[in-house]
Amino acid sequence: MGILFRASGKLLATAIVALGIFILSFMFWPKGILWLQDGAAWFVDTVRTPGFLDEKATVLYRTFVNDSTVLGILVTAIARLVVEIVAFVFGRVGVGR
């Protein structure tokens, strides 16, 4: 468990947990991933056309900010939360020894 206290280990663990979340959600809870995708699409529709950008910047913004990007960011954030909780719990257990 010592790897979860280094930043590189947390990055690797986050990537593995994010892939695991996608695989397990498609296998056991497909409606949940669709719900998360709908939430990402709602967010993108809400912030789709910012008023302070010119025409070229708006095209570039719409190219990079789409529902897949937002879904990936949400799943990565959830995965990082799981990794940080595991690191915190196992760090607390090892402190008393």
Rank of each mutant, 00 (worst) to 15 (best):
V47D: 01
T49M: 04
R48G: 01
L36N: 08
A57S: 11
I33A: 01
A41W: 03
D54P: 11
L53Y: 14
P50Q: 06
V47Q: 03
R48P: 04
E55R: 05
E55H: 03
E55A: 09
V44I: 15
L36C: 13
A41K: 12
D54R: 05
G39W: 02
A40R: 01
N66D: 15
V44T: 11
T49F: 03
D67F: 07
V47K: 00
E55K: 07
N66F: 01
A40Q: 00
G39R: 03
W35P: 00
R48T: 02
D45M: 01
Q37H: 14
R48Q: 09
L34S: 12
T49C: 05
D54F: 05
K56Y: 02
V44H: 06
V65I: 15
V44E: 08
A41F: 04
L60A: 14
Q37A: 15
Q37R: 15
T58N: 12
T69N: 09
D45L: 04
V59A: 14
P50A: 09
Q37M: 13
G39M: 09
R62I: 03
D67G: 05
R62C: 10
T46I: 04
D45A: 06
G39E: 07
F64H: 11
R48S: 10
G39S: 05
W35R: 12
G32K: 05
G32E: 11
L36T: 15
T49V: 01
V44C: 09
D38H: 11
T63D: 05
V47H: 06
G32Y: 07
V44F: 05
G32W: 05
A57R: 06
R48L: 07
K56W: 02
T63Y: 07
E55M: 01
Q37G: 09
G51V: 03
T46E: 02
T69S: 13
R48C: 02
Q37P: 00
G39P: 01
W35T: 14
T58D: 10
P50L: 08
T58M: 11
A41D: 13
T46M: 08
K56I: 06
L34F: 01
D67H: 10
W35N: 12
D38P: 00
T58F: 00
S68N: 15
T58R: 14
F64W: 08
F64S: 03
Q37D: 14
F64P: 07
Y61K: 12
Y61D: 12
F43N: 01
A41E: 15
W42G: 07
F64L: 10
S68W: 06
Q37T: 15
W35V: 09
R62K: 15
G32A: 08
L60W: 09
F64E: 08
D45G: 10
P50N: 07
G39H: 02
A41N: 12
V47A: 08
T69R: 07
W42P: 00
W42K: 11
T63R: 10
T58Y: 01
V59P: 07
A57Y: 00
E55F: 01
G39Y: 01
T46K: 07
F64A: 05
V65H: 13
